[in-house]
């Protein structure tokens, strides 16, 4: 069926996340005086930045037709690795040397850890043709276990002000995590919309068989997607660790679900091939505004969870209802 002109209905359907966000902002502003202030705005942005990093990676993975349950665990290990090498260095007993790390070195080690684990995910999924759900569930356990081994079950604290800057510092009055999140959004919007890789990503997720028969290196695309997802989880791990000045062995528990929620609320199809980074940004904002607003209204955190759950379901239900006309 041809849809030649974009009707108001289409536009509303396409902008539903934005409209939902605006309605929430309006409602919260009316209900709480302290909501609509510059300070609280930056606060919300800072609060969502960790989930934003994870969700950008999750968007790529879900667009490719996959899922990643290990991002929270990768976050924890990456943060712990960065904190550990910064504080203690790495001892190599065989050579009787102790490698000391600078702050940039520790940051690189954290991100590299994420990239490596993500690469492992992608390789297992493509080589052994495992369902991503299973492969990343395995990685979830592996990374959690490695984090415990690395930290001995105790937080690594006292990382210094320089490292702490990326979590707590301000630049031009805006928190560093917000800058980092915004920068990543810009990079990945361009990557998905303007590059060959972005095109291949949508093609692989939209119809893997057709992509293969068209000569795309489907497995390469997938390995890259999981590697990037892991690397972004590494960045998120650095933000969390720097913010708290502490790498917690249990950091990021359940974060994978929040990031999947943000991606889904942002209108990305779980079956792959349809969705955008900007949608995910809106999804993160909706979750952030909801958490923040309910907190300001003194709603119990338990109720916050319940309400968030209904928002996820409603978002996907509305999305489904709007896209139904497509398959007529």
């Amino acid at each position: 069926m041809n849809t030649r002109q974009m009707t108001v209905r289409d536009w509303l359907a396409r902008s539903q996340s934005l409209i939902a966000l605006l309605l929430m902002v309006i409602a919260m502003s009316l209900l709480s005086e302290s909501f609509l202030t510059a300070e609280n705005g930056l606060n919300i942005l800072r609060q969502i930045s960790v989930n934003l990093c994870l969700s950008i990676g999750m968007t790529l993975i879900i667009l490719s037709g996959g899922i990643d349950l290990s991002v929270g665990a990768i976050l924890a290990l990456s943060g712990a690795v960065a904190a550990g090498v910064l504080k203690n260095g790495i001892a190599i007993p065989a050579l009787d040397i102790l490698l000391q790390f600078t702050v940039p070195g520790a940051i690189a080690a954290g991100i590299l850890t994420g990239l490596l684990l993500g690469w492992f995910n992608g390789t297992v999924i493509t080589r052994f043709r495992l369902p991503p759900f299973v492969a990343t569930l395995g990685m979830f356990s592996i990374a959690r276990g490695l984090t415990m081994l690395w930290t001995g079950g105790f937080p690594i604290t006292g990382l210094g002000a320089t490292f702490g800057f990326i979590g707590t510092g301000l630049f031009l009055g805006v928190p560093m995590p917000v800058w980092i999140g915004a920068g990543l959004v810009a990079v990945f919007v361009v990557l998905t919309r303007k590059t060959r890789f972005g095109r291949y990503l949508y093609a692989v997720g939209g119809n893997e068989r057709a992509a293969l028969l068209t000569g795309l290196r489907v497995n390469n695309v997938k390995v890259w997607v999981y590697t990037l997802g892991g690397g972004l989880a590494g960045v998120a791990g650095l933000l969390v660790t720097a913010r708290l000045d502490s790498a917690q062995p249990n950091a990021g528990l359940g974060y994978e679900l929040d990031s999947i929620a943000a991606v889904v609320i942002g209108g990305t199809s779980l079956s792959g091939g349809r969705g955008t980074i900007m949608g995910t940004v809106l999804g993160c904002l909706i979750i952030g505004v909801l958490n923040n607003g309910l907190f300001l209204l003194n709603v119990s955190p338990f109720w916050q969870q319940v309400i968030k759950g209904f928002v996820i379901i409603a978002a996907v239900a509305i999305d489904k209802a709007n896209s139904k006309s497509d398959d007529a």
């Binding site: 949508y202 939209g206 119809n207 068989r209 057709a210 091939g273 349809r274």
Partner: peptide, 8 residues
Amino acid sequence: REGLVLGL
């Protein structure tokens, strides 16, 4: 199923 990515 094999020739096109229908959503693109």
